[in-house]
């Protein structure tokens, strides 16, 4: 009985954690390249969930075959979120390159508020049910602890992270991204188009957030315009926990945070679940701002 409960919490934590990791990757990638906390990243995740909901709704009403809906809706969410991320950077951050450090941050907060209210006004302030889109997976019946959505989330996010890691490691674009993150001026001298790389970073980060949005929406089955704030904060916590700017760090941080939350909810109390994330964030920033896998930076004049 006890061990069953433990395993259930463990898988619940892994599921949550992998979603946090997907979103945290967006924060970490952007921070690695332009040293900006993209405050509106949580909103991109929310937009992903909404786009998927709307596309799935339209397809459902017009009688699209059930099996394909999830795939088409996910693809649509990824494409639109990539476009949102791209536009966001062009409108709110690009004009502020070279401005004092607070300016892009305030602009990002503004953008986050703007996007939340854009969805609130264009769609609805209420919670909306998200359609159940997952295929049947009879082989999971033996493993009672793993629900189909948990299984799918784990699978998809693992694959996405492996693809990302390979992309960053081996492709030309990935190498250019790493070079820009290391030293933007030097990368420019070597003929890397930094603007393009920054756009690419936003596109990749937003696509991952969209994927996270669709997965979590189909798991929770209910979304509203406000979900981006908390998810964004938690994913940011995960990114900081792992060491911001570090890609494996974001994955580790996400999983650790997800497990910590899941066990606290299970063994202590559900009331303090959200406080836990914020408390971890504050403690990490104060005690070890470079995170688990980050490297300490020396402040230069």
């Amino acid at each position: 009985m006890d061990i069953e409960f433990f395993v259930e919490l463990f898988f619940g934590g892994l599921t949550r954690g992998s979603i946090y990791a997907l979103i945290a990757l967006g924060y970490t990638l952007v921070y690695g390249i332009i040293e900006l906390i993209n405050f509106a990243h949580g909103e991109v995740y929310m937009l992903g969930a909404f786009t998927a909901l709307l596309v799935a709704g339209v397809l459902g009403v017009y009688g699209f075959p059930f099996g394909g809906i999830l795939i088409v809706a996910t693809l649509a969410a990824i494409v639109w979120c990539a476009a949102y991320g791209f536009t966001l950077e062009k409108v709110a951050y690009k004009p502020l390159r070279g401005a004092p450090r607070l300016s892009p941050l305030i602009s990002a907060i503004g953008m986050s508020i703007f996007l939340q209210n854009y969805v609130l006004l264009a769609q609805t302030p209420d919670f909306v049910p998200f359609p159940y889109l997952l295929p049947e997976m009879p082989f999971l019946d033996d493993l009672a602890v793993l629900s189909p959505s948990n299984f799918l989330i784990l699978m998809v996010s693992t694959v996405a992270m492996i693809v990302l890691a390979l992309f960053i490691r081996y492709t030309r674009m990935g190498k250019a991204m790493r070079a820009t993150a290391q030293n933007r001026k030097m990368a420019l001298l070597l003929g890397i188009n930094a603007d393009k790389i920054i756009s690419l970073t936003f596109i990749i980060g937003s696509s991952l957030a969209a994927l996270g949005g669709v997965l979590i929406a189909s798991h929770m089955q209910v979304i509203n315009y406000n979900i981006g704030f908390l998810a964004g904060m938690k994913a940011f916590t995960a990114a900081v926990l792992g060491g911001i700017g570090s890609i494996p760090g974001a994955m580790v941080g996400g999983l650790v945070l997800g497990l910590a939350e899941s066990f606290t909810t299970g063994y202590v109390s559900g009331n303090y679940e959200d406080i836990l994330a914020f408390a971890i964030l504050i403690l990490i920033l104060i005690l070890r701002p470079d995170g688990i896998l980050g490297k300490a930076k020396v402040q230069k004049v």
Partner: peptide, 18 residues
Amino acid sequence: YRMLIFGAIMVVMMIFRP
């Protein structure tokens, strides 16, 4: 549209009149 405009103001002010 209050909050929508507040958000937009923060972005626009930072860009054009910090």
